[in-house]
Design a protein around this nucleic acid. Structure first.
Length: 494
DNA sequence: TGAAATGTTGGGGCG
DNA sequence: ACGCCCCAACATTTC
C-alpha cells in the first residue's frame, strides 16, 4: 500500500487533472487536500468575490470526491507546514499538484518542493492550467514573446499538434481510493471565505461554481453560441460569450478540455463556420499569453511593462478619489460606463467589451492609474485572475505588451451606440433611463429634459480626451509617427 | 480590439 | 448646358 497527497489549489476538478491522474497511477491510495494560505500570495491574495466563489467550488469538489469514495481535507496554511503535517498524520510518501504561474505562487511552490524533498517526500508538479507551459514557447531568438500575433501562431501550432496526436482530455477517475482513516479536516466555514455582510447571495445566484457547472456552461455555449461567437461577442446585451472565465480561473475545467471540445464540435458539424470557432479559441490564446507574460515579466503585476510609463503624469490620489468612487459606484453619468460597473457589482462579472470601455474611461478620461482599476476588478470579479487582469489593464492603459497605442481613446458614447445600438444593455442596468429613447439613452445630458434620477456626466468627454492626449505627449520618447513619416516620403519617391 | 480632423469625390440644386 | 456651391459619403491622416 502506498499513499499520496493530491494538493488541490486552482485545479478544482477531477477530469483532465494531471496531478490526480499521476497520483492514482503510482499509488494505491490518494488523499485530496486543500490548504487555505492567502497570505502566501502577498499583495494579490484572493479578493472578496474570489473567496465567495472558492467557498462554493470547494463544496462542489468535496461532493464530487464523496461520490467517488473520498473527501476533501481542508487545512489552513502555511502550505508547507500543513502538507508536512498531513503527510506525517497519514503516512503519505508523496505530494502531487498542478502548476500555477503567478510570481508569488511560483516562488512559494519552488521553495516548498525543495523542502518536501528535503523531508524525504516525493514531490511532483504537473501541467494543465494553460494550453502551453510558459517556457515551452519562445521566439526564434530564444526570448519570451511580447507580441500576441507571433505568440498565437506558436500556440496555435502547439495545440493543433496535440489535437492531431489524439491527446484527448483525461476523464475523471471513477473511484478515488482513500485510506480507511483520514486525517482531520477543518469545516469549510472555518476558512471564513464568505463575507460577514452577506452581499454575496445575489451575485453568486447567477453562477454554478464547480466542475459540473463549468461543464454545463461549456455545453450550453457550444450548442447555442459558438456558431456565431465572432460576430456577436462584442455586443454586451447578447449572450454570445462563454462566461467560462471564473471556471477556468479556478481550474474547474481545463483549457485543453475547452479547446478539445470546440475542435471536436467543429469536426462533427461541417456547417459550423470555422472562423467563428477560431475566434473563440483565440481568446483562450490571450489567456495563455497573459500567463506567459506574467511568468516572464513578474514585476508587471504591479508596474507597467513599458518603462516609459514610469513618468506618466497620472492624476494624484487627492484629485481623483471622488471620481474613482463615482466610477466604482456606477454613477459617472456616462451610461455605458455606469451600466458596466453596475453589472460588475450585481453579478461579479463584466462583458469583455464593457471591461475595455470602463477601463479606458478610468485610465484616460479620469487619468486614474490602471492599478486602481485592477484592484477594484480584483475584489469584485468572480473571475479575477492576476495574469488576465494585469494584461487587460496594461493593454488598455497602453503600457503593456502589444498594447493599444495610448492615443486610442474610446469615446464611451460612440462605443455604446456601436455595440449596444438598441440600448438593451443600458436599460437592463440603468432603470433611471427607462423614460428615454433613441440617442438620448447613450448620452442623457443631450436629452431635452434629462432624467433627474440620473447624475449629470462627471466630466466633459472632449476636454478630457485632450487632457489625456497631452499627458501622453509628455512621456512620448521616440514619436511613433517617425515610422509613418518615412513611409510617406517613400511613397512620394515612387 | 479608435476617434476626430482633414481630404476627396460625386450627385443635385441653382443661377 | 454649364459652372459653382453645398454637403453627404467615403477615404486618409493624425493624435
Amino acid at each position: 500500500m502506498s499513499l499520496a497527497l493530491v494538493w488541490f489549489r486552482r485545479d478544482l476538478r477531477l477530469a483532465d487533472n494531471a496531478a490526480l491522474c499521476a497520483a492514482l497511477a503510482h499509488h494505491t491510495q490518494v488523499l485530496p487536500v486543500f490548504v487555505w494560505a492567502p497570505e502566501e500570495e502577498a499583495r494579490w491574495a484572493p479578493g472578496a468575490a474570489s473567496r465567495v466563489w472558492l467557498h462554493h467550488s470547494l463544496t462542489a469538489l468535496d461532493r464530487a470526491l464523496r461520490a467517488r469514495g473520498s473527501a476533501l481535507i481542508l487545512r489552513r496554511g502555511p502550505s508547507l507546514n500543513s502538507l508536512l503535517a498531513l503527510a506525517r498524520e497519514s503516512g503519505a510518501r508523496a505530494v502531487y499538484w498542478n502548476r500555477l504561474y503567478e510570481p508569488a505562487v511560483v516562488a512559494r511552490d519552488t521553495a516548498l518542493k525543495s523542502a518536501l524533498r528535503a523531508a524525504g517526500l516525493a514531490a511532483e508538479s504537473h501541467p494543465g492550467h494553460a494550453l502551453a507551459e510558459p517556457w515551452e514557447l519562445k521566439t526564434s531568438a530564444g526570448t519570451p514573446y511580447r507580441v500576441f500575433t507571433p505568440f498565437w501562431r506558436a500556440l496555435d501550432a502547439h495545440w493543433r499538434a496535440r489535437f492531431a496526436a489524439g491527446r484527448a482530455p483525461r476523464p475523471a477517475p471513477r473511484a478515488i481510493p482513500s485510506p480507511n482513516r483520514s486525517p482531520e479536516s477543518l469545516p469549510l466555514p472555518a476558512l471564513e471565505l464568505l463575507p460577514r455582510v452577506r452581499w454575496d447571495r445575489a451575485p453568486i445566484a447567477h453562477w454554478q461554481p464547480g466542475e459540473t457547472g463549468a461543464q454545463a456552461r461549456l455545453r450550453e455555449f457550444l450548442d447555442r453560441a459558438l456558431a456565431h461567437y465572432r460576430r456577436e461577442r462584442d455586443f454586451p446585451a447578447v449572450p454570445a460569450t462563454s462566461r467560462l472565465s471564473p471556471h477556468l480561473h479556478f481550474g474547474e475545467i481545463s483549457p485543453w478540455t475547452v479547446v478539445w471540445q470546440v475542435q471536436t464540435a467543429q469536426v462533427a458539424d461541417p456547417r459550423l463556420d470555422s472562423a467563428e470557432a477560431e475566434g473563440f479559441v483565440r481568446q483562450l490564446g490571450w489567456r495563455d499569453f497573459a500567463h506567459h507574460l506574467l511568468y516572464h515579466f513578474p514585476h508587471t503585476q504591479d508596474e507597467p511593462l513599458d518603462p516609459a510609463f514610469a513618468d506618466f503624469p497620472w492624476a494624484r490620489p487627492a484629485d481623483y478619489t471622488a471620481e474613482l468612487a463615482a466610477w466604482q459606484r456606477g454613477s459617472t453619468g456616462i451610461p455605458i460606463v455606469d451600466a458596466g460597473l453596475r453589472e460588475l457589482w450585481a453579478t461579479g462579472y463584466l462583458h469583455n467589451r464593457v471591461r475595455m470601455i470602463v477601463a479606458s474611461f478610468l485610465t484616460k478620461h479620469l487619468l486614474v492609474p490602471w492599478q486602481e482599476g485592477a484592484r477594484w476588478f480584483w475584489d469584485t470579479l468572480f473571475d479575477a485572475d492576476l495574469a488576465n487582469n494585469t494584461l487587460g489593464w496594461q493593454w488598455v492603459a497602453g503600457c503593456g505588451a502589444d498594447a493599444a497605442p495610448y492615443f486610442r481613446i474610446f469615446n464611451p458614447v460612440l462605443q455604446s451606440k456601436k455595440f449596444d445600438p438598441e440600448a438593451r444593455y443600458l436599460k437592463r442596468w440603468l432603470p433611471e433611463l427607462q423614460a428615454l429613447n433613441g440617442e438620448a439613452l447613450h448620452a442623457p445630458w443631450l436629452a431635452p429634459s434629462p432624467p433627474g434620477a440620473y447624475p449629470p456626466p462627471i466630466c466633459d468627454l472632449a476636454a478630457r480626451r485632450e487632457r489625456a492626449l497631452a499627458a501622453y505627449a509628455r512621456i512620448k520618447t521616440q514619436p511613433r509617427s517617425g515610422g509613418s513619416a518615412r513611409r510617406r516620403s517613400d511613397r512620394r519617391a515612387e
